[in-house]
Protein backbone atom coordinates (compact mmCIF):
# COMPACT_ATOMS: atom_id res chain seq x y z
CA UNK A 1 0.00 0.00 0.00
CA UNK A 2 1.53 3.29 -1.03
CA UNK A 3 1.57 6.05 1.53
CA UNK A 4 -1.10 8.69 1.10
CA UNK A 5 0.05 12.29 1.35
CA UNK A 6 -2.17 15.39 1.27
CA UNK A 7 -0.51 16.69 -1.88
CA UNK A 8 -1.02 13.44 -3.73
CA UNK A 9 -4.76 14.17 -3.74
CA UNK A 10 -6.55 17.11 -5.30
CA UNK A 11 -8.92 17.65 -2.36
CA UNK A 12 -6.95 19.03 0.53
CA UNK A 13 -7.72 19.90 4.10
CA UNK A 14 -7.40 23.58 4.99
CA UNK A 15 -4.94 22.73 7.76
CA UNK A 16 -2.95 19.87 6.26
CA UNK A 17 0.28 21.79 6.71
CA UNK A 18 -0.29 21.80 10.44
CA UNK A 19 -0.10 18.01 10.29
CA UNK A 20 3.36 17.71 8.73
CA UNK A 21 4.86 14.29 9.30
CA UNK A 22 1.57 12.59 10.10
CA UNK A 23 0.42 9.39 8.45
CA UNK A 24 -2.68 9.76 6.32
CA UNK A 25 -5.35 7.70 4.68
CA UNK A 26 -7.57 8.56 1.75
CA UNK A 27 -11.07 9.54 2.78
CA UNK A 28 -13.41 10.59 -0.01
CA UNK A 29 -10.48 11.80 -2.10
CA UNK A 30 -8.76 13.76 0.68
CA UNK A 31 -6.04 12.86 3.14
CA UNK A 32 -7.11 12.33 6.74
CA UNK A 33 -4.41 12.18 9.40
CA UNK A 34 -4.56 8.84 11.15
CA UNK A 35 -1.55 9.35 13.38
CA UNK A 36 0.62 12.36 14.10
CA UNK A 37 4.39 12.38 13.96
CA UNK A 38 4.93 13.36 17.56
CA UNK A 39 2.72 12.97 20.55
CA UNK A 40 0.29 10.43 21.82
CA UNK A 41 -1.75 8.69 19.19
CA UNK A 42 -3.90 7.04 21.78
CA UNK A 43 -7.30 7.24 23.28
CA UNK A 44 -6.11 8.59 26.61
CA UNK A 45 -4.87 11.73 24.85
CA UNK A 46 -8.29 12.12 23.24
CA UNK A 47 -9.92 11.69 26.62
CA UNK A 48 -7.69 14.33 28.17
CA UNK A 49 -7.45 17.07 25.54
CA UNK A 50 -6.89 16.68 21.82
CA UNK A 51 -7.42 18.40 18.48
CA UNK A 52 -8.33 16.44 15.37
CA UNK A 53 -8.78 17.65 11.80
CA UNK A 54 -11.90 16.18 10.20
CA UNK A 55 -12.03 18.65 7.30
CA UNK A 56 -11.84 16.01 4.56
CA UNK A 57 -14.69 13.99 6.05
CA UNK A 58 -17.80 14.51 3.87
CA UNK A 59 -20.53 16.90 4.98
CA UNK A 60 -23.37 18.66 3.27
CA UNK A 61 -26.18 21.04 4.02
CA UNK A 62 -29.64 22.05 2.84
CA UNK A 63 -31.76 25.10 3.40
CA UNK A 64 -35.33 25.85 2.53
CA UNK A 65 -38.88 25.08 3.53
CA UNK A 66 -38.63 21.53 2.21
CA UNK A 67 -35.15 20.80 3.55
CA UNK A 68 -36.45 18.99 6.62
CA UNK A 69 -38.65 16.80 4.45
CA UNK A 70 -35.69 16.05 2.19
CA UNK A 71 -33.66 14.76 5.12
CA UNK A 72 -36.59 12.96 6.61
CA UNK A 73 -37.21 11.17 3.34
CA UNK A 74 -33.65 9.88 3.58
CA UNK A 75 -34.45 8.46 7.00
CA UNK A 76 -32.47 11.02 8.95
CA UNK A 77 -33.60 12.12 12.42
CA UNK A 78 -34.62 15.78 12.45
CA UNK A 79 -33.76 17.76 15.60
CA UNK A 80 -36.86 19.34 17.07
CA UNK A 81 -35.49 22.84 17.41
CA UNK A 82 -32.82 25.07 15.89
CA UNK A 83 -29.37 24.76 17.47
CA UNK A 84 -29.85 21.09 18.27
CA UNK A 85 -28.09 18.11 16.77
CA UNK A 86 -29.14 14.50 16.49
CA UNK A 87 -27.08 11.42 15.76
CA UNK A 88 -28.04 8.84 13.15
CA UNK A 89 -27.72 5.11 13.67
CA UNK A 90 -24.53 5.04 11.62
CA UNK A 91 -22.98 7.98 13.43
CA UNK A 92 -23.71 10.96 11.20
CA UNK A 93 -24.64 14.21 12.90
CA UNK A 94 -27.71 16.09 11.76
CA UNK A 95 -27.41 19.77 12.70
CA UNK A 96 -30.38 22.07 12.72
CA UNK A 97 -29.08 25.62 12.42
CA UNK A 98 -32.38 27.41 11.94
CA UNK A 99 -36.00 26.54 11.26
CA UNK A 100 -35.05 25.60 7.73
CA UNK A 101 -31.32 24.98 7.62
CA UNK A 102 -29.75 21.55 8.18
CA UNK A 103 -26.23 20.19 7.89
CA UNK A 104 -25.24 16.56 7.76
CA UNK A 105 -21.76 15.69 9.04
CA UNK A 106 -20.36 12.33 7.96
CA UNK A 107 -19.32 9.57 10.30
CA UNK A 108 -15.69 8.65 10.80
CA UNK A 109 -16.59 4.97 10.91
CA UNK A 110 -17.77 4.78 7.29
CA UNK A 111 -15.70 7.65 5.90
CA UNK A 112 -18.81 9.73 5.39
CA UNK A 113 -20.67 7.30 3.15
CA UNK A 114 -24.01 8.48 4.54
CA UNK A 115 -23.36 11.99 3.24
CA UNK A 116 -22.63 10.72 -0.24
CA UNK A 117 -25.87 8.75 -0.14
CA UNK A 118 -27.85 11.88 0.73
CA UNK A 119 -26.11 13.85 -1.98
CA UNK A 120 -27.17 11.23 -4.52
CA UNK A 121 -30.85 11.83 -3.76
CA UNK A 122 -32.71 14.24 -5.97
CA UNK A 123 -33.66 17.55 -4.36
CA UNK A 124 -37.32 18.36 -3.75
CA UNK A 125 -38.94 20.28 -6.56
CA UNK A 126 -38.99 23.58 -4.71
CA UNK A 127 -37.39 25.49 -1.87
CA UNK A 128 -34.52 23.24 -0.95
CA UNK A 129 -31.04 24.50 -1.72
CA UNK A 130 -27.82 22.64 -1.16
CA UNK A 131 -25.13 24.39 0.85
CA UNK A 132 -21.39 24.47 0.40
CA UNK A 133 -20.25 23.61 3.90
CA UNK A 134 -17.70 21.09 2.67
CA UNK A 135 -15.70 24.00 1.26
CA UNK A 136 -16.88 27.05 3.13
CA UNK A 137 -16.08 25.44 6.49
CA UNK A 138 -13.27 23.50 8.03
CA UNK A 139 -14.14 20.83 10.58
CA UNK A 140 -11.98 20.73 13.67
CA UNK A 141 -12.81 18.38 16.53
CA UNK A 142 -11.76 19.20 20.05
CA UNK A 143 -12.03 16.30 22.46
CA UNK A 144 -11.51 15.46 26.10
CA UNK A 145 -12.39 16.31 29.63
CA UNK A 146 -11.63 20.03 29.56
CA UNK A 147 -13.83 21.22 26.71
CA UNK A 148 -15.77 23.97 28.51
CA UNK A 149 -12.68 25.33 30.26
CA UNK A 150 -10.69 25.30 27.04
CA UNK A 151 -13.39 27.06 25.05
CA UNK A 152 -13.91 29.59 27.85
CA UNK A 153 -10.51 31.00 26.90
CA UNK A 154 -11.65 31.77 23.36
CA UNK A 155 -15.44 31.99 23.45
CA UNK A 156 -17.99 34.03 25.36
CA UNK A 157 -20.74 31.42 25.50
CA UNK A 158 -21.28 29.23 28.56
CA UNK A 159 -20.47 25.77 27.24
CA UNK A 160 -20.60 23.93 30.55
CA UNK A 161 -22.63 20.72 30.53
CA UNK A 162 -25.54 22.27 32.42
CA UNK A 163 -26.17 24.94 29.81
CA UNK A 164 -24.72 23.17 26.75
CA UNK A 165 -25.62 19.49 27.08
CA UNK A 166 -24.89 16.76 24.58
CA UNK A 167 -26.66 17.53 21.32
CA UNK A 168 -26.44 21.30 21.71
CA UNK A 169 -25.24 23.65 19.01
CA UNK A 170 -23.85 27.16 19.46
CA UNK A 171 -23.41 29.48 16.52
CA UNK A 172 -20.98 31.96 17.94
CA UNK A 173 -17.52 33.44 17.77
CA UNK A 174 -14.38 31.58 18.79
CA UNK A 175 -11.20 33.65 18.95
CA UNK A 176 -13.18 36.19 16.90
CA UNK A 177 -13.95 33.74 14.09
CA UNK A 178 -17.56 32.78 13.41
CA UNK A 179 -18.13 29.12 14.09
CA UNK A 180 -20.70 26.44 14.67
CA UNK A 181 -19.93 24.37 17.78
CA UNK A 182 -21.61 21.00 18.18
CA UNK A 183 -21.47 19.05 21.43
CA UNK A 184 -21.41 15.32 20.71
CA UNK A 185 -19.32 12.24 21.30
CA UNK A 186 -16.64 10.86 19.05
CA UNK A 187 -16.10 7.16 19.69
CA UNK A 188 -17.47 7.72 23.17
CA UNK A 189 -15.15 10.65 23.94
CA UNK A 190 -16.66 14.08 24.72
CA UNK A 191 -16.23 16.25 21.66
CA UNK A 192 -16.90 19.77 20.44
CA UNK A 193 -16.92 19.78 16.67
CA UNK A 194 -16.02 23.26 15.50
CA UNK A 195 -17.01 24.24 11.98
CA UNK A 196 -15.25 27.45 11.03
CA UNK A 197 -14.62 29.62 8.00
CA UNK A 198 -12.22 27.48 5.98
CA UNK A 199 -10.02 30.48 5.21
CA UNK A 200 -9.50 31.05 8.94
CA UNK A 201 -8.84 27.38 9.72
CA UNK A 202 -5.09 27.72 10.16
CA UNK A 203 -5.58 30.69 12.44
CA UNK A 204 -8.18 28.90 14.54
CA UNK A 205 -6.09 25.73 14.68
CA UNK A 206 -3.24 27.67 16.27
CA UNK A 207 -5.60 29.55 18.61
CA UNK A 208 -7.17 26.33 19.84
CA UNK A 209 -3.82 24.63 20.40
CA UNK A 210 -2.74 27.66 22.41
CA UNK A 211 -5.88 27.45 24.55
CA UNK A 212 -5.44 23.70 25.05
CA UNK A 213 -1.88 24.04 26.23
CA UNK A 214 -2.62 24.33 29.95
CA UNK A 215 -4.72 21.16 29.80
CA UNK A 216 -2.01 19.10 28.14
CA UNK A 217 -3.78 19.20 24.80
CA UNK A 218 -2.15 17.78 21.67
CA UNK A 219 -2.96 17.06 18.06
CA UNK A 220 -4.09 13.52 17.37
CA UNK A 221 -4.90 11.45 14.30
CA UNK A 222 -8.13 9.56 13.80
CA UNK A 223 -6.59 6.25 14.88
CA UNK A 224 -6.47 7.55 18.43
CA UNK A 225 -10.23 7.05 18.48
CA UNK A 226 -10.34 3.55 17.06
Amino acid sequence: MSATSPESLSKRSFVYRQLAGASFRDIAGGAMATGVAEGNNNRSQAEQSALLDLSVLPRTGFRGLTAAAHLQAAGLPIPARPNQASVTGSGELVLRLSQKEFWLLGALSDSGAGVDALNQRGLPAADCYSLYCQDSHAWLALTGAHLPATLAKVCGVDLREASFPLGSIAQTSVARVNVVIVHHQLAGVPCFSILCDSAAAEYLWESLLDAMGEFGGEVIGSNALL
Binding site: A175, S207, D210
Partner: peptide
Amino acid sequence: GRIFDPYRRTAMHH
Protein backbone atom coordinates in the same frame (compact mmCIF):
# COMPACT_ATOMS: atom_id res chain seq x y z
CA GLY B 1 -3.14 39.87 26.84
CA ARG B 2 -3.86 37.19 24.25
CA ILE B 3 -5.64 39.42 21.80
CA PHE B 4 -7.29 37.58 18.95
CA ASP B 5 -6.55 39.00 15.55
CA PRO B 6 -7.88 36.55 12.97
CA TYR B 7 -6.32 36.30 9.55
CA ARG B 8 -7.70 34.52 6.53
CA ARG B 9 -5.66 32.63 4.01
CA THR B 10 -6.64 31.37 0.61
CA ALA B 11 -6.13 27.75 -0.34
CA MET B 12 -3.09 28.86 -2.36
CA HIS B 13 -1.50 30.91 0.40
CA HIS B 14 1.48 28.66 1.01
